[in-house]
C-alpha cells in the first residue's frame, strides 16, 4: 500500500498553493510515496525522552538596543514588484463587492 494517496497530494498541494496537472499529480504521488517509505526507517530509532534539535549551535537570542535604524526606502522596496502603484504593491481584489 502506498504511504500517500493522490487525494492527500491534492490536499497538500492546495495548502502549498500549487496546482498539479494529472501527470504531475501521478508522478508526485509515486515519488513522495517512495521518499516516505525511505524515511519510515526513523521509526526504528528509540527517541524516548530525546529533546528535538531545531538549531545545531545553541545561541541565546541576541537583542539590540531599541533604537530606530535606517531602513530601505519605500521606492526601492517596491522596485521589484511586478505590479505597483506609487509605493504600494498591487494585488487582485481580496474582498467581494468593493468594485466601484
Amino acid at each position: 500500500m502506498s504511504r500517500i494517496t493522490r487525494e492527500e497530494v491534492a490536499r497538500i498541494a492546495s495548502l502549498a498553493r500549487l496546482s498539479l496537472d494529472d501527470d504531475e499529480s501521478q508522478r508526485t504521488t509515486t515519488q513522495i510515496g517512495a521518499i516516505l517509505d525511505y524515511v519510515a526507517q526513523l521509526a526504528e530509532v528509540d527517541t524516548t525522552g530525546i529533546e528535538p534539535t531545531a538549531h545545531a549551535v545553541p545561541l541565546r537570542t541576541p537583542l539590540r538596543a531599541d533604537r530606530a535604524q535606517p531602513a530601505m526606502p519605500p521606492e526601492l522596496a517596491v522596485a521589484n514588484a511586478p505590479q505597483r502603484e506609487g509605493t504600494a504593491f498591487v494585488v487582485p481584489l481580496v474582498l467581494d463587492g468593493e468594485e466601484s
Binding site: 497538500i12 495548502l15 515519488q31 524515511v39 530509532v45 527517541t47 530525546i50 534539535t53 531545531a54
Partner: peptide
C-alpha cells in the same frame, strides 16, 4: 515543487510528530 509538497506534508496536522519532530529528535 516536490520538496515544497513533502515539507508541507510533514508539517501538516497529523504528521508533524511522526515525521518532523521525530527527525529533529534524531538530529539530536
Amino acid at each position: 515543487k516536490r520538496r515544497i509538497l513533502l515539507g508541507t506534508y510533514v508539517l501538516s496536522a497529523g504528521y508533524y510528530d511522526a515525521h518532523y519532530r521525530k527527525a529533529q529528535q534524531v538530529r539530536t
